[in-house]
Each structure stands twice: as C-alpha cells, then as structure tokens.
C-alpha cells in the first residue's frame, strides 16, 4: 500500500477519541474490581478461622500492606509503560513495596528461626498456593490486560510481567485471608515464589498479547 493511500484511509476512519486518563486515575478502577473479586473468592472459599487474631498482628498487616502496595504500584507501572511520554519514574515504583514485602518475609524467617529453631524453617510441599493465586489473579489480570490494550505496546514483555505481578499480588493478598500458613519461609517460597513465577511466565507471553497492529511478532 502506498503511504499516501494509508494516510487517506486512516484520516477517513478516524473519529474523535477521548484521551486516556492518567494511570494514576485509571488504577483505582482496576483495584476496585480486583479487590471485589478477590474478597468474593475469600468469602466463597471461607476465611481462615483465626482471621480476627491475624488482623491485629503487626507482622501480618505489614506483609499484607506490602503485598497490596506491590499490586497497586505494579499496575500503575504497567499502565504507565503503555503511555509513550510517561516518565521513567513510574516503571521503578514497584521496587520499593516489593522490596519491603521481601524484607518483612525475610525478617519473618529470622524470627521463626529465633523462636522455633530449625523447625521454624521447615519446608514442606504447599503447591496448591500456585493454583489459588493464579485463580484469584485471573480476573484482575484479564481486566488489566484489556485496559493495557487501549494503550501503546511499547514494552510488551515488561508491561505484561508487571500486570501479572499486580494480579498475582492481589491473589496472594486474598490467599493469606483463607490459607492457614504463616511460616515466613513457606510464604516466601510457595506464595511469593508463585507470584514471581506467574509474572515471569506472563513476561514471556508479552509480545503475543500486546502488539502493534499490522506487524508480525
């Protein structure tokens, strides 16, 4: 096709478009949907019996807060990556809460060791965490991907990895509300491990899911 003809056809089909709001404004809509779905799943599966005790425990609140902050900032970063002139600052934002999340769990491992000795760091198989996190994260990821497809696929792999990180962090946030597992090392390996694995897999699929039109992957 000649470039002039392309310009003709693009100009002819172009109607008015509403500029996308800033990521900072779009992220709250996503968060509302994601949390509503996650909490509905917690209710459906049944909250853990000791939830009331956990909700007054500083360590539990800190870990949950960090997980939630990781989800919000990762979603923000993913949205910002699809805006061509967004500042680079946004893409590094999740590093802070994700670091805090890992740090609280790392400190938790030390405390478990100090309180219980080697028994506090015992590793047993807990693979169903992956399934729950993937299940609860699925709808939030789908919604976020639909939002991201309205933007520009400038960095598809990073964008989708961050989106999956956001969704899986929501999944983990919900999992802690019904799954009775508080050993820091177990949470670190089976839950945060699952979140990281989901983000990595999504990153590999980035170019298939988010792409410019008319170009082979």
């Amino acid at each position: 096709m000649k470039t002039d003809a392309l310009i003709e056809s693009l100009a002819r089909e172009a109607g008015p478009v509403r500029p996308l709001p800033a990521p900072m404004r779009r992220v709250w809509g996503w968060l509302a949907i994601a949390l509503a779905f996650a909490l509905a799943m917690v209710w459906a599966i049944g909250p853990r019996p000791d939830l009331a005790e956990r909700l007054v425990e500083a360590r539990f609140l800190l870990e949950q807060g960090a997980a939630l902050a990781t989800a919000i900032t990762a979603a923000l970063a993913a949205l910002a990556l699809t805006m061509p002139d967004a500042a680079r600052f946004w893409r590094w934002l999740p590093v802070v809460p994700a670091g805090a999340w890992l740090a609280t769990l790392g400190l938790g491992c030390l405390r478990d060791w100090a309180q219980m000795g080697p028994a506090g760091l015992r590793i047993t198989a807990d693979p169903e965490c992956f399934g729950y996190i993937a299940l609860i994260g699925s709808l939030p990821l789908l919604v976020l991907v639909l939002m991201l497809r309205r933007g520009a696929p400038l960095r598809p792999s990073w964008t989708l990895a961050l989106a999956a990180l956001a969704a899986a962090a929501i999944g983990n946030f919900a999992l802690r509300l019904f799954h009775t597992q508080d050993a820091a090392l177990m949470v670190l390996i089976w839950q945060v491990g699952a979140v990281a694995l989901i983000a990595a897999i999504a990153g590999l699929c980035g170019r298939q899911v988010l792409r410019w039109p008319g170009v082979a992957a």
Partner: peptide
C-alpha cells in the same frame, strides 16, 4: 503512522 493511529488516545 499506524502506531500513531493506534496510540492516539494515549496523547495527553
């Protein structure tokens, strides 16, 4: 041009 067209809502 196609990319500009696709992404035109992302311009503030």
């Amino acid at each position: 041009l196609l990319s500009l067209h696709t992404a035109r809502a992302t311009w503030d």
